[in-house]
């Protein structure tokens, strides 16, 4: 594993976007950043700027009002980038499934790398999801090397 790739795995900066969740999952994301769970141990920083972010955490279902914002934020993130759908709503639309104006899970708009079910998700799950996503990134990189 090269130095650059190691750095990529050690320093995932997070952009959090709320697509219209009930705020339950958002609060759990914030909880994950607090001293008790201390996401910064893994180099995770909540950066708030798509141009510097590596991981997009989306909560809530995609809907007709904000899908273009989600798409835009995703497009403004430089490669390599990962998307994590946090919570049942973000995965499938959840309780909002088939509601008017709701498109369903966020994978209708942007490609999702890791799904985290739960209503609301637990901070441990979020941490686990980031680790999974990073493993995926590492795996991708390795398979590219093999080719």
């Amino acid at each position: 594993m090269g130095l650059i790739q190691k750095s990529q795995l050690k320093s995932p900066w997070v952009l959090h976007f709320d697509c219209g969740s009930c705020n339950g999952c958002d609060i759990e994301i914030l909880a994950a950043l607090t001293p008790k769970f201390d996401l910064e141990r893994f180099g995770i920083v909540n950066i708030g700027d798509p141009k510097q972010a590596d991981v997009l955490l989306v909560t809530g279902p995609a809907n007709k009002r904000n899908h273009r914002v989600l798409k835009n934020l995703y497009n403004q993130m430089p490669q390599p980038k990962l998307v994590i759908a946090v919570g049942t709503c973000a995965c499938t639309g959840g309780v909002f499934h088939n509601c008017p104006n709701v498109l369903g899970g966020v994978d209708n708009v942007v490609p999702v790398d890791v799904y985290v079910p739960g209503c609301a998700v637990r901070p441990e799950q979020i941490i686990d999801a980031v680790v999974l996503a990073l493993n995926k990134l590492a795996g991708l990189a390795q398979s590219e090397e093999e080719e």
Partner: peptide, 8 residues
């Protein structure tokens, strides 16, 4: 890339 304008 265009400037960041809150995604809008």
């Amino acid at each position: 890339v265009p400037a960041y304008l809150g995604g809008e």
